[in-house]
Amino acid sequence: MKQGRNLWATFVASGFGLFFLMPIFGAIYTALRTDNAIASGPFVWEFDRDWSHFKNAMGAAGYDFASFFQNSALISIGTVILTVFISLPAAYSIVRLGFGGAWLLRIALALRILPAVFFIIPFYKLFTNLGMVDSIRGLILANTFVNLTLALLIFASAIKELPYEIEEAAFVDGAGVFRTLWSIILPLMGPGLAAVGVLTFIFSWSDYLFAVVLSSSEATPVTVGAANFVTSYGVRWGDISAAVTLSILPPLIFATAAQRYLVKGLSAGAIKG
């Protein structure tokens, strides 16, 4: 097919793209302008040469935003590690060692359908009893719970695609189950790990509901922090815009770099067969 013939498709796709990116452009545009310009109307072009909104957001104005950012990073990275640690061995056990058969995967799928809001009250009570309210640990556990199903499904389908002969040969050579998992399966799980990693990172960075219920100040991530910004510092749109612009960057960079795995993971987890 000749490329030049489909310029209309470029236009249509660009139109959608513009709409999708509009909020981000709006935030960057506002963050770069002076407070005076922001207050005078949306089309007053007066740019701030000192980046003061970004400096304010990162701590110059006494906001806690830098610590929200750190919390989000710790929660997301912790969730990725715990999710992989729990779901990869379980997927191997289910797929290759026949543990629990298909019903375990069914339970995991059924969980995907339960709304998170069903769990907020029990989690709040449970975490209060365990002394884990407003802690990074607590939010890592809650987010792992949310991401476990998708991770299990992605790993299960990735393991299924591996030729069984390699493992068989390892068994014949006297390697045990753990040895096989560690030195045969794990090195071949690159794409699966990338898919689970990128999706889990996005979803735990995006969590709002659990964070708003299970954190109050110490463990507050950027999502809750930014939303509170709007209500408590309602008029400081420049600082808010800078804070939001910074907050969307880590998942955006990570996911764009790992886009291939994002696409694969989402389609494996959402529709299979």
């Binding site: 490329q3 660009s14 793209g17 999708f20 981000i24 709006g26 709002y208 998942p251």
Partner: peptide, 25 residues
């Protein structure tokens, strides 16, 4: 079509952004 790879990445951007941060924007 021209620019397909780039526009595909652009189209996927909303998936990568937290709904709550989107709401603030």
């Amino acid at each position: 079509f021209p620019g397909k790879t780039f526009l595909f990445s652009v189209t996927l951007v909303p998936i990568m952004i937290a709904p709550s941060l989107m709401a603030v924007m």
